[in-house]
Design a protein around this nucleic acid. Structure first.
Lengths: 136, 136
DNA sequence: CAGAATCCCATTGGATACTG
DNA sequence: CAGTATCCAATGGGATTCTG
C-alpha cells in the first residue's frame, strides 16, 4: 500500500528520488512539500471555510480522485494540520476540519497566492515569449 | 525529451496526472507548482545571494543532478524568474541571476519558510504521535 | 565549462472493484 | 457514506555518455 510512509523513515529508497534534501539539504523541505502538493493546498483552502465531510470535499474539489483525497487527508492529519472526527451514526459521517496549526498555515499560503495572482500575467507572458523564441 | 512542455499547452495528457486544476481548478496552480518543486526553491534561494555560474550552483546545491539543475533553470528562465547570460569566452561561461520578478518571489518564500521553521517541531511531533498510534 | 541525449527504474495517481 | 485494495499508465529523476 502506498499510504504508509515507513519508507520516509529510512530516508533511502535506493534510487528513486533524491530524498537527499529531505534530510540534510533543507530541514524544512518536508514541510514545504505539503505546500507544493496541489491537492493539499486545495484541501486546506476548502477546509478554511469550515468543517467539511468527505464527499462534500470530494464534490467541491472537482477533479480529485477518491484515492487522492484520502491520501491527502491522511497526510494533513498526520502533520496535525487537519482533524478527523467520526460521528457514530448510520451511515457513518466523518468530518474534517483545520486545526489551529492548519489555520496558521493559511496566512503564508495567502501571501504566496497573492504573489502568484499578482504576477501571473508576467509569468504567462514570459512563457509565451520563451516558447515563441524556442519554437521559432 | 522531457524538457519540452508543449504538453502543458494542450492541458491534456490522456490519463497521467490531473492536469485538471492546471487549467480550470486553480488558475495559480502552475505558479505554485514551481514553489512546490524542491529544486526550484533551492536554486532561487542560492541565486538570491547573487549571480552564479552553472557548476558553482551545482556545487552549492549539493545533491542536485546535472540534469535537474538544467531542467530547473530552464523552467525558471521560461517563467522569467531567472536570467541566463552567456559570456563569449573559452571555455564558455554562463551566469544565472534572479530577475526583478525572481527577487520579488523571495519575500513570499521567506514567509513560508518562516512558518515551516517555526512549526516544524509541532509537525514532527504530530507525525511521531500519528505513526505511534497507527503502528501500535 | 555548460549542457544535450539516452536509458531505465521508482513513484505518482487515476480507474475500478470491494467493504463496514 | 467513507473509505480500502489492486492494477496499471504516465511522469520524475538519477546515472551515464557525448558534444561545442
Amino acid at each position: 500500500m502506498d499510504v504508509t510512509d515507513s519508507r520516509s523513515q529510512t530516508g533511502e529508497t535506493g534510487r528513486g528520488r533524491p530524498s537527499a534534501l529531505q534530510e540534510f539539504k533543507c530541514p524544512i523541505r518536508d514541510v514545504l512539500d505539503r505546500v507544493g502538493d496541489a491537492w493539499s493546498v486545495l484541501v486546506v483552502t476548502n477546509l478554511a471555510e469550515g468543517p467539511t465531510r468527505f464527499n462534500e470535499l470530494k464534490r467541491r474539489i472537482e477533479g480529485i480522485s477518491q484515492r487522492m483525497l484520502t491520501v491527502t487527508l491522511r497526510h494533513l492529519e498526520r502533520d496535525g494540520l487537519v482533524s478527523r472526527t467520526v460521528m457514530p451514526t448510520t451511515p457513518p459521517q466523518v468530518e474534517y476540519a483545520l486545526t489551529d496549526l492548519g489555520h496558521s498555515l493559511c496566512r503564508p499560503l495567502d501571501v504566496l497566492a497573492d504573489w502568484a495572482t499578482a504576477n501571473q500575467p508576467l509569468i504567462r507572458a514570459s512563457r509565451e515569449r520563451y516558447d515563441a523564441e524556442s519554437g521559432g
